[in-house]
């Protein structure tokens, strides 16, 4: 710690909520600055000394984190209005006071903690897995080319963080949309040679009520995804696959 940074303070403004049913309210904090501090370390300072800017002792701010290196997806929140990972957001690159808000596209549990289970339900719905041996062995799967692996790899990095759903104008209480994360994962599992055994079942979700018809091509999802997953490419490809599948399955009826 250099002498010049000792006295600097970081101003934080947190939108808090005491319980799932509580009202949300703003609370301000100021915490000592350290070089290379990120939003998580700022929140940890509040945890160490939960005193707000008015000097009152308050309940410590609740938030979630695990990996601290942008791979687990737990720490998503709206920082200065935009959704991103708290662990990879450096404090000195932000305008102050830094506003922290929960991703309220999801049900808010407490302060910055949200319930992201709709995304895990979505993965079950799209059959986000590759079927392997059941009561009998299915044998070894086909080989995958290096190109194919490279393309699939990008989608495999999805950490179910929810940033894409939070930024999507069409994921909200008025729309049934399952969201861009699920679309990316349909593309991912459908391009796997063994995963593609369930291709049509996944396409059923794509062309269903909660599916791709709800996307309005605002392309926010691809802009905010911290993993840089080409979500809009997946969406365009699923449009093509879904259109074909819908037409042919109808013509075959």
């Amino acid at each position: 710690m250099t002498a010049t940074t000792v006295d600097k303070l970081v101003q934080l403004k947190v939108r808090r909520k005491d319980s799932t049913t509580g009202e949300s309210y703003w609370e301000e904090f100021s915490v000592p600055f350290r070089t290379n501090m990120n939003v998580i370390s700022a929140l940890m300072e509040i945890q160490k000394n939960p005193v707000n800017a008015k000097g009152e002792k308050v309940r410590s701010v609740a938030w979630e984190y695990n990996c601290l290196e942008e791979v687990c997806g737990a720490c998503s929140m709206r920082i200065n209005g935009k959704v991103r990972q708290a662990c990879s957001t450096l404090v000195d690159r932000l305008e102050q006071p830094i506003t922290l808000e929960p991703m309220d596209t999801f049900p808010v549990e407490k302060d910055l903690v949200v319930d992201r289970s709709r995304m895990f339900n979505a993965l079950q719905k799209i059959k986000g897995w590759v079927p392997i041996d059941g009561t009998y062995g299915l044998g070894s799967g086909p080989l995958i080319s290096a190109d194919h692996q490279q393309e699939a790899y990008k989608y495999s990095t999805c950490m179910t963080c929810g940033c894409c759903l939070e930024a999507c104008p069409n994921v909200n209480s008025g729309s049934p949309f399952i969201g861009p994360q699920a679309m990316g994962q349909v593309k991912y599992f459908n391009m796997h040679p063994t995963g593609s055994l369930q291709k049509n079942e996944r396409l059923e979700v794509v062309i269903g009520e909660e599916g791709i018809a709800n996307c309005g091509s605002s392309q926010n999802c691809v802009q905010v995804c911290p993993k840089g997953i080409p979500l809009t490419t997946a969406i365009a490809e699923l449009n093509r696959d879904g259109n074909r599948y819908a037409l042919w399955s109808w013509l075959k009826k």
Partner: peptide, 25 residues
């Protein structure tokens, strides 16, 4: 204007394709 909070997804198999067909039309 809808609020930003979504409800849980339900698990029923999606058989209603009218939204998809309407969006293509």
């Amino acid at each position: 204007m809808p609020s930003n909070t979504v409800t849980q997804l339900n698990y029923t198999a999606s058989t209603r394709k009218s939204r998809f067909v309407l969006s293509r039309l």
